[in-house]
Nucleic acid binder design. Structure first.
Lengths: 152, 152
DNA sequence: ATTTACTCTATCGTTTCAATAGACTAAATC
DNA sequence: GATTTAGTCTATTGAAACGATAGAGTAAAT
């Protein structure tokens, strides 16, 4: 399960992606739009800024902006930043590999082979999906729903 | 990431699956074989017993036994028991659905659509894999390794 | 100078994690 | 039926993470 923090982060980044090119967004604006506790969101955006995902400007006309276009920012990248490795076990992580101290033989450990499958499936989805993709799929879905509604 | 508890549980169940049909296994025996802290393993096996996955017998010749054959016990079933839903967000869980309080429109939420994909991929793997499968794949892998070694 | 808005540090109550400990109880065996 | 073997149950513990909340501070426009 994702933490609330990560979920909020994804929603905030999605809002910032939708607004990309239209100048900065206020924390307060994002908090209101996505119904996220404002003070908590501040911390989250600050962390994303320190990690290089966001840029900010203080004072009037300030706010937060994506540091690069939404089609160059993958969900997997952000989640690894906030939650750590996508892998269910450290011994199958590509980005944060660690040996299981109790394991006799990693190469033939059945649990490991299975968890590697899970990791690969998860990473395939999350690393190939950018925030631009998320927006597009959401829009496609909205259109689909409307079409469905009209067709009744 | 799985907790140590879950990892230990899977390894213990794997040991019990390998021994299925050969009478009960002692906690101490499993702990030694899989290098799991014995006292911690007691708690884990007790929980698995209370959940109906294991059966135990006290006294001499006692120990733990799987409650049903390893080809009828899926990894997904066990993990849900110990870790809760496989889904990254409660709003995409099939077994423990919950609405996100802050969400405006669940049907078009892009984050949700993406996480549903992840959930489905994960569940497809873990629900279709039994402990018998894990053993078989591990054995196949061992044979493969040996063959590879010989072929050099 | 003043307002606006982000920045940083600290704190807090709760829960989970990963064990550890000890007393207890059931079941074989001798 | 005493004794050993081995699982059962409750409690505790220390550390860390979770999910905020609070307040003082600082940079940048107007």
């Amino acid at each position: 399960m994702l933490s609330h923090k990560s979920k909020y982060a994804l929603k905030a980044l999605l809002a910032l992606s939708e607004e990309y090119g239209n100048g900065p967004l206020l924390i307060a604006e994002i908090a209101a739009r996505e119904r996220i506790p404002k003070r908590f969101l501040e911390l989250i955006l600050l962390e994303l800024k320190n990690q290089g995902v966001l840029r900010s400007r203080k004072g009037k006309g300030g706010g937060y902006v994506l540091n690069k276009p939404p089609d160059l920012l993958s969900v997997g990248h952000v989640l690894r930043m906030l939650e750590g490795p996508l892998a269910p076990l450290p011994c199958v992580s590509k980005t944060a590999y660690e040996k299981c101290v109790e394991c006799h033989d990693e190469r033939t450990c059945g649990i490991r082979l299975l968890m590697k499958e899970v990791r690969d499936a998860t990473a395939a989805i999350l690393d190939s999906t950018t925030f631009a993709d998320v927006i597009n799929r959401s829009r496609a879905n909205r259109r689909g729903e409307r079409a469905l509604t009209y067709s009744i």
